[in-house]
């Protein structure tokens, strides 16, 4: 299987609107470590691009280049048509970084108010906190907030400038289920309003539910890019789930089976050659029931793609 899929949409889409952010043949090294190796990647207007990859794949470096925090060793980086080092090009973006501590003595509302002052037409601080479901935190000192609440306030900072391009680096780490759902709703609302978003995440479910396009990085290279279903279709694995008495250990030895496990009465099998495995299962267990077969999810596709690239 060829997983070396290039950025599937050209830098200048047919519609004529230029990309909001581009990396052209970008390489970046930190000492002997190659963080990015000739990467081409574009972010188009109104799309949510999920950047996926194992730790050290180059996701945060790619975002740091777009934000002007690091400079490429080779290649060209553009943000909203110009250099990310120009403050004017950054005025149309919002940022939520992985590990930024905000002034602990300020209240949440004050932190957002300060961020609002950086933009030409910001939301009011209360509206920004409302948007991310954190209005109740407005008067709390930032240092007294829980990890998840801090992430909510950081998200408010990212959206307060009504940006046309938003960089979210691992935004939902530490959020409880309710806060994560609220963040996802806000993200969908932003995309529906025409905002483009670059999202890095280790939660593949997050990418699966939100992304218009997924770019998979490994060892500083783009190894796959496309819609979630296109990425899933890149791998041939299928998930088989059924009620069966067959021992998982025995099934695991069959050709074409990559994984087999038991969950109570249910047998779960991941197979490359699903059709033949299914025939053999049906032949081996006449009492087999509740059969479900589905294509591998993004998680399985991601695992296989990055394993092959390693």
């Amino acid at each position: 299987m060829d997983t070396r899929v290039q950025d599937s949409v050209p830098a200048m889409p047919v519609g004529g609107e230029p990309s909001l952010a581009e990396l052209h043949g970008v390489s970046k090294r930190y000492g002997k470590v190659v963080a990015l190796n000739g990467l081409d990647l574009s972010v188009h207007r109104g799309e949510l691009l999920a950047l996926l990859g194992p730790n050290g794949a180059g996701k945060t470096t790619a975002i740091s280049l777009w934000l002007g925090l690091v400079q490429p060793d080779e290649g060209k980086v553009t943000l909203r048509g110009s250099s990310p080092l120009e403050v004017q090009s950054r005025r149309g973006i919002g940022v939520m970084m992985q590990d930024a501590a905000l002034p602990p003595q300020l209240r949440a509302r004050e932190v957002v108010e300060l961020a609002c002052s950086y933009y030409a037409h910001p939301l009011s601080p209360d509206a920004a906190l409302d948007m991310v479901g954190a209005r109740s935190l407005a008067l709390r000192p930032y240092s007294k907030l829980s990890g998840g609440q801090k992430r909510q306030v950081q998200f408010a900072l990212a959206v307060c400038g009504q940006p046309e391009l938003l960089f979210l680096d691992e935004p939902s780490v530490g959020l409880d289920v309710q806060a994560r759902e609220a963040m996802w709703r806000a993200i969908r609302q932003l995309v529906a309003g025409g905002c483009s978003i670059v999202l890095t995440t280790h939660y593949l479910e997050e990418a699966e539910r939100l992304a218009d396009r997924v770019a998979v990085l490994a060892s500083g290279r783009l190894i796959a890019s496309g819609t979630v279903s296109e990425i899933r279709s890149l791998v041939s694995r299928k998930q088989i789930r059924c009620t069966s008495e067959m021992p998982a250990a025995a099934v695991r030895e069959w050709p074409g089976v990559t994984q087999a496990s038991r969950d109570g009465r249910h047998l779960q099998v991941t197979a490359i050659d699903a059709e033949n495995v299914l025939r053999r299962l049906l032949a081996a267990d006449p009492n087999l029931a509740d059969l479900e077969v589905r294509q591998a999810g993004l998680a399985e596709a991601f695992t296989e793609l990055t394993k092959e690239a390693a």
Partner: peptide
Amino acid sequence: ERDQGLLRLKRAMPSP
């Protein structure tokens, strides 16, 4: 604040 990443965030944001 440098240690905590605040300066990095300010550089990324359009802080004047």
